[in-house]
Amino acid sequence: MKRRSFVSGVTASALTNTAAAPASSAPHRIGMSDVERLQRRFAEVIASDHRYGGQLGIEQEAAALADRALALQESGHATQRVRGYLYGCAAAFRSSAMWAAIDGRRFDDAAVHMREAQALAEMAGDPAIKFRIWSHAGTMYRHMGRPTQALAANNVARGLHINRRDPMFASLGLARQMAIHGAAGDNAATQRAYDEAQSAMDRANPGVHRPVWLNAFYDQAELDSLALSAYLALGQHDKAEYHAYRCLAGLRPHMRRSKAITTTRLAHAQLEQGALECAVNTAMSVSIDAAIQHPRVALMLRDFGARLTEVAPRSVTAETWSEYARTTWESAA
């Protein structure tokens, strides 16, 4: 309830603070101050996503703010530069709605947001937001189990000029390509993409100005998180465990959603190496809040329990996990 109240409160606050000015006989002038207010709201959406992730309230908030940015286009006079920024804000909000839907496993809704975001990004002419949308599309198709489409979408992102201008974008595109190759079972391509992603990150200039959404999440810890996903899919559980520990050591405090996902994947890697007690202890360290509220974490924990029962049926370890799941996050869900 506390989480739902927070998200609803942020939504109401965002819409109230970006409300249109009262009607006046004089034509309303839309300027950079309007754009800056929307950009501050976008930063708040990003922060909410990293704390909570996948919530319907975040998706709805971002979609409502995208509509607000578009409504401003019709509310008065503006320069072409300002109009371009407003389309960019709308595209950014739609891409966040898309990501929240992907993270919440609401793929049909994510596809709708994707199409709207793509059209808005074209009108904005902003290569960074185009990259974000197509990169998210690649992730969406990967989570849907469609690696061919995932690769095609991610290649659109990687083909944008911004990858050549800034190695940090190139690194993210390659890191997500690595995760797609892992899901497709291509070991050689996975390793090659990882090496190239790491090399690009090492070349990136930390002093370059980058979008808030990129600065908020992409760093060495996220590269290790994507490597963890790739190697886990390939069945290379020792490598997966290595990258899980590297990711957890480097995660910034606000990345609560990422911590829960990484910890759950670490438990899977430990389980597949026969470290049953260690795996269960790791899985039990995932916050109950994440286990209940985050659809992706909840699904991975259910898969963990099913795999544990398959590997060690009627074992004390399996019984310990079943009792824990039943009396904590399953009963509270």
Rank of each mutant, 00 (worst) to 15 (best):
I58G: 01
D34I: 01
A332P: 03
L174S: 05
S225D: 08
R132I: 00
G250F: 05
Q149D: 15
A66K: 06
M1I: 11
L56I: 13
V297F: 04
T11R: 14
R252N: 15
G84K: 09
A200Q: 05
S331C: 08
Q220A: 09
P295C: 10
N17T: 14
L65K: 00
A26K: 15
A91W: 05
G159Y: 07
D67S: 14
A189Y: 08
N205C: 09
S258K: 09
M284W: 05
D67T: 10
F131M: 00
M144A: 12
L301P: 11
A275V: 02
A66M: 10
A71K: 08
M144F: 03
R3E: 11
P27S: 13
Q270W: 01
Y194R: 07
L86D: 06
I292K: 13
Y218C: 04
Y242D: 12
D109F: 10
L271Y: 02
F304L: 05
A227K: 03
V45A: 10
T139Y: 14
A78K: 03
K239S: 07
D238S: 13
L299N: 13
V316W: 13
R265V: 14
M32G: 12
A244R: 00
A260F: 06
A275C: 14
A227C: 08
L228A: 06
S95W: 08
G159I: 02
D219F: 08
R41G: 00
L271P: 00
R296E: 14
R176K: 13
P127L: 05
Y85W: 09
T79S: 12
G305A: 02
R142W: 06
E323S: 11
K130L: 12
A275L: 15
L232D: 02
Q177L: 10
A124F: 04
S315L: 06
A150H: 11
E241A: 06
V82N: 06
L151P: 02
S95V: 07
H50I: 06
R326N: 12
S285H: 08
L271V: 01
T262E: 02
V311M: 15
G250T: 13
A90T: 04
W321V: 01
D303I: 06
S287H: 14
R210K: 06
I30V: 06
L271N: 00
A14V: 00
D108M: 13
Y52S: 08
G173P: 03
R81Y: 05
Q198H: 08
H28R: 15
L299Q: 15
M168T: 07
D166E: 13
S171Q: 03
H209R: 11
A152S: 13
Y141R: 06
R83Y: 09
A184R: 00
T263S: 02
G182I: 01
E116Y: 01
L223F: 09
R256T: 15
A19K: 04
H50L: 04
Q191G: 08
C247S: 06
D67M: 12
N215Q: 09
T327A: 03
